[in-house]
Design a protein around this nucleic acid. Structure first.
Lengths: 343, 343
DNA sequence: CTGAAAGCGCTTACAG
DNA sequence: CTGAAAGCGCTTACAG
């Protein structure tokens, strides 16, 4: 079947070969390639047959050179990468985006920009037109990259609301506040009244919104706000562990904890275990994310499911629309309470 | 600083602009861009200054069109993706490769090929020259993709030894057999004698090698082989759980289990817990990978650390060398026993 | 509907 | 060391 020898990378057929094979001009081949408008059925067919016979695949570099589009999308991760990679949600997101993009036959370039230097280099690369648009995932969303890209006119959609950019930048996010509300209402419905919270980083929209939801529901239930019940976390397991310790010190009789991520909730579980508290008998624990960590924990975590598959699909949809000329748009997706053993 | 208006993506400067600005020909600019050979220091400097002033960034499409190289690398994931994405090692690997590549200023294209169809499409894409080389991660390594790519002469390095391809294909792997040996020796040194094993998939080199290491050490210790002590797993948590159940049925007095992955070991821990066995008092459990799951487990897992950061770095190094003309090479990296609470 | 031709931005022998 | 010129593989008005 293959005529070339091992290691020899033969020259792929060009549009010229296809044209010769089909007995038409290169222009006609190109027209078939680009939607088949203004092409007779006969020519259409001849070209398609020739493409099949020659195994022709378009040279994207040549095409991009003239169209000025790269036909590829960047998946840009800024700020502390470790945190993201540790986070199982990240996987689902990355996989979802890659798949959604593959369905449109557009390759995804993975770009990591953890340091100031890398950020500068990648911004340059992007604004030079090497990708048609960017899916942006950054934690601390005061991120200057978003603003720079927006200003350079690069189509962009962020995962989560970029702080400070309002709706000038497209984004897709789960309804963090509503999710938090659901969880705290659930805890209240169980009869818990001294409900602590380990928050996410408060310079992120997710962190802020989940805390806001928690406070709202307690206020609505007529429970007085108590600052000792709120401790900050950074989405890491360790911060959950430390947070629970502090909570226990300050409010020994607390009967529930709402934790802003499942990973932190694992830490909370450990701390509670060390302190001899039973979950959920003594202390109910609610997480956020419905990540694999939620099922892996003992006891399995009651949590808030973020619709990651939908988030990734929407990010891709909005980005492609924007590349096609649409204006920026924000998409907020509902969450869902998943009850397990920890409450 | 920026003169363009929001949303307007202005045309980036070309080599022509730089040439005019520097007062030289385009050829000279190109020579500076490509290493500065045969260029006078004066011209060199003038060009560099012009590049800085204009903010010029090379158009890779134009360059690739003529060089025939894409200056990008594909990270190809074949077979069941879910499993990989569930696997924390995958993250470390992907991140490591992206970073190592970024250091060489070459972008990484993430390619998922879970279905037959996708595999065909992506193979075509790759052999058409859209990437200069491929980092291949596939679980069941009877994978036809590896053979196809090799035959097409695409530079390729696999993660783990591709079954059946011998050393015709480059690969980088941890020393699975030696790691397994270390773990089983450790278990023996603790006085355990009825040591069960939950294997990985036996159509993967890792699965085969870890089992081989287990058997070797038991044989060397003069312990008679007992097939009831070996149950198959597929690296999923669920298969670990099920495997431990079967082990317990068949050999109720077993005193240790060597599990071929940390994720499966989590499942084993659950099953043991349900069965009322204490770990490590009644049954010692050893994992493999030193993934985050190892620390997240209760008790924390004694395990075998795979040097993922080195693996990714080596994969990139070998691939770039091969693209540069080197012959394929295999790299085997040592593992390390990490003692925690489960043994 | 279709062909001939120009041109995208770059690199690379080829003369000097 | 340097410029002029050809050409990489494609798309896109432009005439027919």
């Amino acid at each position: 079947m293959t005529m070339h020898h091992t290691g020899g990378r033969r020259k792929p057929p060009t549009i010229h070969d296809v044209a010769r094979e089909a007995g038409v001009s290169r222009g006609t081949v190109s027209r078939v390639l680009n939607g088949g408008h203004y092409v007779s059925p006969a020519a259409q067919e001849a070209v398609n047959a020739a493409i099949r016979r020659t195994g022709y695949v378009v040279n994207r570099h040549a095409r991009s050179l003239i169209t000025g589009r790269s036909d590829s999308i960047g998946f840009l991760l800024t700020e502390p990468q470790e945190r993201f990679f540790e986070d199982p949600n990240f996987n689902v997101l990355l996989r979802g985006c890659t798949q959604a993009l593959a369905a449109h036959d557009v390759p995804l370039l993975l770009m990591l920009a953890g340091t100031q230097d890398e950020r500068r280099r990648i911004t340059r690369y992007i604004t030079a037109g090497h990708v048609d648009g960017v899916l942006l995932v950054s934690s601390h969303s005061g991120d200057p990259v978003a603003e720079e890209l927006r200003e350079a006119g690069v189509p962009l959609v962020a995962c989560g609301k970029p702080i400070g950019l309002g709706s000038k930048v497209s984004y897709v996010a789960a309804d963090d506040r509503d999710g938090a509300r659901d969880m705290v209402k659930h805890l209240l419905s169980l009869g818990r009244r001294r409900i602590g919270m380990v928050t996410g980083p408060l310079d992120t929209p997710g962190g802020v919104e989940r805390l806001a939801g928690y406070r709202e529901v307690l206020a609505e239930a007529g429970i007085e706000a108590d600052d000792r019940l709120v401790v900050p976390g950074d989405y890491s397991r360790a911060s959950g562990d430390a947070g629970a310790e502090r909570l226990l010190e300050r409010v020994p009789d607390l009967d529930a904890v709402f934790v802003a991520s499942d990973l932190m909730a694992q830490g909370v579980l450990s701390a509670l275990h060390r302190a001899g508290r039973r979950v959920p008998e003594d202390v109910a624990v609610g997480g956020f994310d419905d990540s694999p960590a939620a099922v892996a924990s003992t006891p399995a975590l009651t949590t808030i499911r973020q619709p990651w598959d939908r988030i990734s699909a929407e990010m891709v949809r909005v980005l492609l629309a924007q590349i096609g000329g649409d204006d920026p748009a924000a998409v907020i997706l509902p969450t869902e309470l998943v009850r397990r053993e920890s409450t």
